[in-house]
């Protein structure tokens, strides 16, 4: 599969990006502004945005850099969330246990399913990742002791050494922001590392990569595990933010939304995934507040963005900037 920005070169190394720093600074200030308004609503909304931004980062890492379009990434989010919920149902709520567990479970799922999925490519890869996503979805729905289709409420948010650190919304907010910044920096480092170079190369020309000595499959599987674990991290945070977990987290529509967020923001940029998650969720929220039939606006908007804003919002911003600097 080709990519959106086929002729755009991949920069050789990470540079400090003022826009991204600004974005994180704004996120850090949100709680202060929120104190003057409907605080818990704003904190809850933006926390959710950041959680999905982490998941979208993972999808951008796979799609935008590895050329692996996954249509089942919500499964990893769900796995992370269910790990927290199931551990909680058994009285284990400490994040020193549940967070590593969520990461391990999603990484293991990525390793196993990646071994199978990565044998295929292109549209077949999209569909087989969908298949595993659907399997996870139906398994979650069958977990009768943990709520089945209806889902399950968390007994409490995760604790740290027994302390209810996520007890207040602000703490959870800043923890999520911290994880988002860390995830972004991690993805950025990995993309430019030796590994990332091979991972990106495999997307451009797998045959060439094999003939210079790379076992493409193994590198892609490692990349898949990284992205899967990030999905699990998002799930861990989502469970805490919502204090509730249900199979709906893993539906194929959710996976589709993650892809849309990434494309919304701009594929292959990482920060585009964050911009995309924010604009997608905020737009949804804003339109839904405007009219009951907001989907009549939202649907055509997606079409318009595809037709007229190639490269997503980030691409749009870049071309606007280019036009201004030319004048």
């Amino acid at each position: 599969m080709t990519s959106l920005a086929a002729d755009k070169p991949v920069p050789r190394a990470a540079r400090f990006n003022v826009g991204v720093a600004l974005m994180f600074a704004v996120l850090a200030l949100v709680p202060f502004a929120a104190a003057f308004g409907p605080e818990s609503y704003v904190l809850g909304l933006v926390t959710r945005v950041m959680v999905f931004a982490i998941a979208a980062l993972a999808v951008d890492f796979l799609c935008g850099f590895g050329g692996l379009v996954t249509f089942g990434h919500a499964a990893f989010v769900g796995l992370g969330a269910y790990t927290v919920a199931i551990a909680g149902a058994h009285g284990v709520t400490d994040m020193t246990v549940t967070l590593p567990l969520a990461l391990i479970v999603s990484a293991a799922f990525a390793y196993v399913t990646g071994t199978i999925c990565l044998r295929t490519n292109g549209v077949y890869f999209i569909m087989i990742t969908l298949a595993f996503g659907q399997m996870a979805y139906f398994i979650a729905g069958s977990l009768a002791p943990y709520g089945g289709d209806d889902g399950i409420t968390l007994p409490t948010r995760s604790t740290l050494f027994g302390l209810a650190v996520f007890g207040n919304d602000r703490a959870l907010y800043y923890a999520t922001l911290g994880f988002l910044v860390a995830s972004y920096l991690l993805c950025r480092a990995v993309v430019y590392s030796r590994f990332g170079r091979v991972f990106r190369g495999a997307r451009e020309n797998p045959t060439r990569m094999a003939t210079i000595g790379y076992d493409v499959f193994r590198y892609q599987r490692v990349g898949y595990v990284i992205a899967g674990s990030l999905g699990g991290l998002a799930g861990f945070l989502l469970a805490n933010a919502a204090e509730f977990v249900s199979p709906a987290y893993m539906s194929w529509q959710r996976s589709g939304e993650l892809i849309i967020m990434v494309l919304f923001g701009g594929l292959g940029t990482l920060y585009g995934a964050i911009v995309g998650a924010a604009s997608y969720l905020l737009l949804e929220e804003g339109l839904a507040g405007l009219t009951e039939n907001w989907k009549l606006i939202f649907g055509p908007l997606l079409v318009i963005i595809v037709l007229f804003a190639r490269g997503g919002l980030v691409g749009l911003a870049a071309s606007v900037r280019a036009r201004f600097s030319r004048d």
């Binding site: 990519s3 594929l267 939202f298 649907g299 997606l302 079409v303 595809v306």
Partner: peptide
């Protein structure tokens, strides 16, 4: 307008049409 576009772009645009028509 979508035939010579990327598969991903086709997916989003047609997903937008689903959202619209389901509500429609």
């Amino acid at each position: 307008q979508l035939y010579d576009r990327d598969h991903l772009e086709q997916v989003i645009a047609t997903f937008g049409i689903i959202i619209f028509l389901n509500q429609g």
